[in-house]
């Protein structure tokens, strides 16, 4: 992946813990990029580094080829993992204030704030104090605060955590729309199914290093092949466990999902299945993002 935002060999240690270990990747414009990794992989540290919120031991963050400075950050939008808003400040005033800190004049900030609150379905709470809102609504306000100044790049740390399906849809829709209008959108998540639906590309990190990246399509069609087989009379897929070069990744409603090693022969699998009973399903499938993730982070 190439794109305007480049993270170049970022390293950061906290005492004995290595949070970032030469992490490099780019974020292209025009697509939603998912940022994945197990807990403690360094996702939050990397995102904070983009905003200069953590010191780096080495490495640099560049935007359009130039090091990111205060002026660039003004044109970025950020939604941190641990949400941060003034609990006693009215919603609309708070969103507008953050817009002003990003360089908007008072009138533009106020109208953008009310526009985004409307769009995210919290316009009726514009005069309420943030602390009085539900978790889901606070999250929407937080997103509005990240979007109010129409940023060229949006960085969101776990934007979907703790949301109901309607909230996820509302936020997901906004992210896709932002990306398709030519902006950079990078967000981290643990909900891999959702990432698969929303993202065109992903970057997967583990132990502070990049372990996989590319478009979801590329990643799904690369790597070990998947076979889904149903054999009548053997709902547990016991027949498959003896086939060399084949691993059963899951058994679901009588169907077994198999991972084929590089050298494994699908004909041999078919023969083994037929020997066990009547074969009613025999389909090659794409890797799911969750499988890409597990294989990349060596679970």
């Amino acid at each position: 992946m190439t794109g305007p935002l480049e993270l170049d060999r970022l390293s950061r240690r906290f005492g004995d813990v290595t949070a970032l270990d030469g992490l490099s990747f780019s974020v292209p414009a025009g697509q939603v990029v998912g940022f994945l990794g197990p807990n403690g992989a360094g996702k939050t540290t990397a995102m904070r580094a983009i905003f200069g919120l953590t010191d780096l031991d080495s490495g640099s963050v560049r935007w359009a080829g130039a090091p990111v400075g205060a002026a660039e950050r003004r044109r970025f939008g950020y939604m941190p993992e641990e949400r941060g808003l003034y609990p006693n400040m009215p919603v609309a005033e708070q969103v507008a204030y953050i817009g002003r800190l990003h360089g908007m004049d008072a009138r533009a900030a106020a109208s953008a704030a009310s526009g985004w609150l409307e769009r995210l379905g919290v316009a009726d709470r514009a005069a309420s104090k943030v602390g009085s809102l539900s978790h889901g609504n606070q999250q929407r306000v937080q997103l509005a605060a990240a979007l109010v100044h129409d940023p060229e790049m949006l960085v969101l740390d776990e934007p979907l955590a703790g949301l109901d399906p309607a909230g996820m849809d509302a936020i997901g829709e906004v992210l896709v729309e932002r990306a398709h209008s030519g902006h950079c959108v990078l967000f981290s998540s643990h909900q891999l199914d959702l990432v698969e639906d929303l993202c065109e590309s992903v970057a997967i990190i583990d132990h502070g290093r990049l372990v996989a990246s590319g478009t979801v399509d590329e990643l799904a069609t690369s790597g070990p092949r998947r076979l889904v087989v149903r054999v009548e009379g053997d709902r547990e897929g016991a027949w498959a466990r003896a086939v060399p070069g084949v691993r059963v990744s899951e058994v679901n409603g009588g169907e077994v999902r198999l991972v084929l090693d590089q050298g494994a022969d699908s004909d041999a699998v078919l023969d083994a299945a037929r020997a066990a009973g009547r074969v009613t399903t025999f389909t090659f499938e794409r890797r799911r993002l969750s499988e890409v993730f597990r294989e990349a982070v060596s679970w």
Partner: peptide
């Protein structure tokens, strides 16, 4: 309070 509510992260993403 700014530190405890973490709003400081959002603010420092924009100002020094």
């Amino acid at each position: 309070e700014e530190k405890a509510s973490r709003v400081v992260e959002v603010l420092l993403a924009a100002v020094r």
